[in-house]
Simulated assay, not measured.
Amino acid sequence: MLRKLLLGFGIIEILKPEPIIGLCERIGLRNSGEIERRPLALTGARIEGLVFVWLLVRGRQGSTLVSALLGSVGLTLVLVPRPIIELSQHLVYAETDRLELQPWVVPAARLLGVLYLIVTLLSRSPGTESAGNSGVTESTDDSAQSASRLPSR
């Protein structure tokens, strides 16, 4: 269920990033209507959505580099969010010195990091909800196949 929700979010972020960015700005900035956004912001949001969709659909066949990058950013956001917040501000806004951040920006960035980590973890598990059982079944099937190839005595 969570995989489907995140997949839906990723698709919406690819197709219509403007409302999502606007919502994040209203949550995180006191002066969201006064700040000039760079055109790169929409592209960045679409890339984020594409990464979510790619990892959640492709799973283990997806890029381990993309998964590792998203996981690294997620872990950094959880542990030390300020450098990522500052970097994203410089990428998204023309005049970062005019930004008036809400006090809950750091906790919100940590939650975003948790979201990135969840997407990374979901991308490593199979598409079904019973992710824990499939690894055991696969190894059991492999050993059964190997045993059937042995010559009988």
Results as ranks from 00 to 15, higher is better:
residue 31 N to M: 02
residue 108 A to I: 13
residue 28 G to S: 12
residue 149 R to C: 02
residue 77 L to T: 04
residue 128 T to R: 11
residue 35 I to D: 10
residue 106 V to E: 09
residue 146 S to P: 02
residue 62 G to V: 04
residue 115 L to T: 12
residue 87 L to A: 14
residue 132 G to A: 12
residue 63 S to G: 08
residue 72 S to V: 03
residue 116 Y to N: 05
residue 12 I to Y: 09
residue 111 L to H: 12
residue 48 E to C: 07
residue 91 L to P: 01
residue 18 E to L: 15
residue 75 L to D: 02
residue 5 L to P: 00
residue 128 T to E: 13
residue 93 Y to I: 01
residue 153 R to N: 10
residue 129 E to V: 10
residue 75 L to C: 03
residue 100 E to S: 07
residue 63 S to F: 06
residue 76 T to H: 11
residue 136 V to F: 11
residue 88 S to G: 15
residue 110 R to Q: 12
residue 19 P to G: 14
residue 70 L to K: 01
residue 128 T to K: 10
residue 30 R to L: 11
residue 79 L to V: 14
residue 112 L to K: 07
residue 51 V to A: 06
residue 36 E to P: 11
residue 42 L to R: 13
residue 119 V to E: 00
residue 3 R to S: 00
residue 72 S to H: 07
residue 60 R to A: 05
residue 81 P to Y: 10
residue 3 R to H: 04
residue 129 E to G: 08
residue 37 R to K: 09
residue 36 E to F: 15
residue 105 V to H: 11
residue 145 Q to A: 03
residue 42 L to I: 12
residue 9 F to R: 13
residue 21 I to W: 08
residue 132 G to D: 12
residue 70 L to A: 01
residue 128 T to N: 11
residue 49 G to R: 04
residue 58 R to Q: 06
residue 4 K to W: 08
residue 120 T to W: 02
residue 41 A to W: 06
residue 40 L to T: 07
residue 126 P to H: 08
